[in-house]
């Protein structure tokens, strides 16, 4: 059942158009009909409103494009691969520095023992003073550790923000991930640059014994 037109004048006009449907509409006819349609909206939607809607639609398209582009950067990968790796590397720096400082302090304490038990005269004072200098210089480890802890906290803050972004962009990120997985399935040659990974985290690569065994396996 046909719905009655909101405006009787428009209804009449539509009947007239249907009657004339065998003939093509001119540009003026189309403009006239559109004008009448707008007129039937009873002042609820003005030309200004329509312009606003058009601009809002453009804005929505812009936001959607931005979401797709952000998702293509793969924020989930930044969080999982890069930030977590950076945090682990920094933890390894703190651990290695602490261990090295411990060994330096062992040596300095050994020097003091030697100075106390086996050396006499000015040489004893000299060795003691040198050992004191080592203790003073070893302060750096505490400061370095605290600075790195601050950096790790900052990275964790960024990670939380990125995770929130990934949550908001859920579908787009998943699409970008699938696209990238398909790209990565294509076989790629290992380049010299791929082999430059720097020091590895403990357990993340071969130790000397494993390297020796690997080399021996080629013989």
């Amino acid at each position: 059942m046909a719905m009655p037109a909101a405006d009787p004048t428009l209804g009449e006009r539509l009947k007239q158009v249907r009657a004339e449907s065998a003939q093509p509409l001119t540009k003026d006819d189309v403009a006239s009909i559109i004008g009448e349609v707008v007129g039937t909206m009873g002042g609820d939607v003005s030309m200004l409103d329509l312009k606003l809607y058009t601009e809002l639609e453009g804005l929505a398209r812009y936001i959607q494009t931005a979401r797709t582009e952000i998702a293509a950067i793969r924020p989930d990968k930044i969080s999982q691969d890069y930030i977590m790796a950076a945090t682990d590397e920094l933890d390894a720096v703190v651990g290695a520095t602490e261990e090295a400082t411990g060994r330096i302090l062992d040596a300095a304490e050994g020097l003091l023992n030697v100075a106390d038990e086996k050396i006499e005269g000015p040489a004893k004072d000299e060795v003691t003073e040198l050992a004191m200098s080592i203790f003073e210089a070893s302060n750096f480890q505490d400061i370095t550790g605290q600075r790195i802890t601050k950096v790790v906290k900052t990275l964790k803050h960024i990670e939380a923000k990125i995770e929130a972004l990934v949550h908001v962009l859920g579908e787009e990120v998943e699409r970008a991930r699938q696209n990238q997985v398909q790209e990565e399935r294509k076989p790629a040659r290992t380049t010299d640059e791929d082999l430059l990974n720097g020091p590895q985290l403990p357990g993340g690569a071969c130790n000397q014994d494993e390297i020796d065994r690997l080399l021996a396996s080629f013989d």
């Binding site: 302090l105 300095a108 304490e109 004191m132 203790f135 003073e136 070893s138 302060n139 480890q141 505490d142």
Partner: peptide, 17 residues
């Protein structure tokens, strides 16, 4: 008092000297 054992060692040795 320090949560860094390395720092405790340093202060202890300096105090000892």
């Amino acid at each position: 008092v320090d949560d860094y054992k390395t720092m405790l060692r340093i202060i202890r040795n300096l105090l000892k000297q």
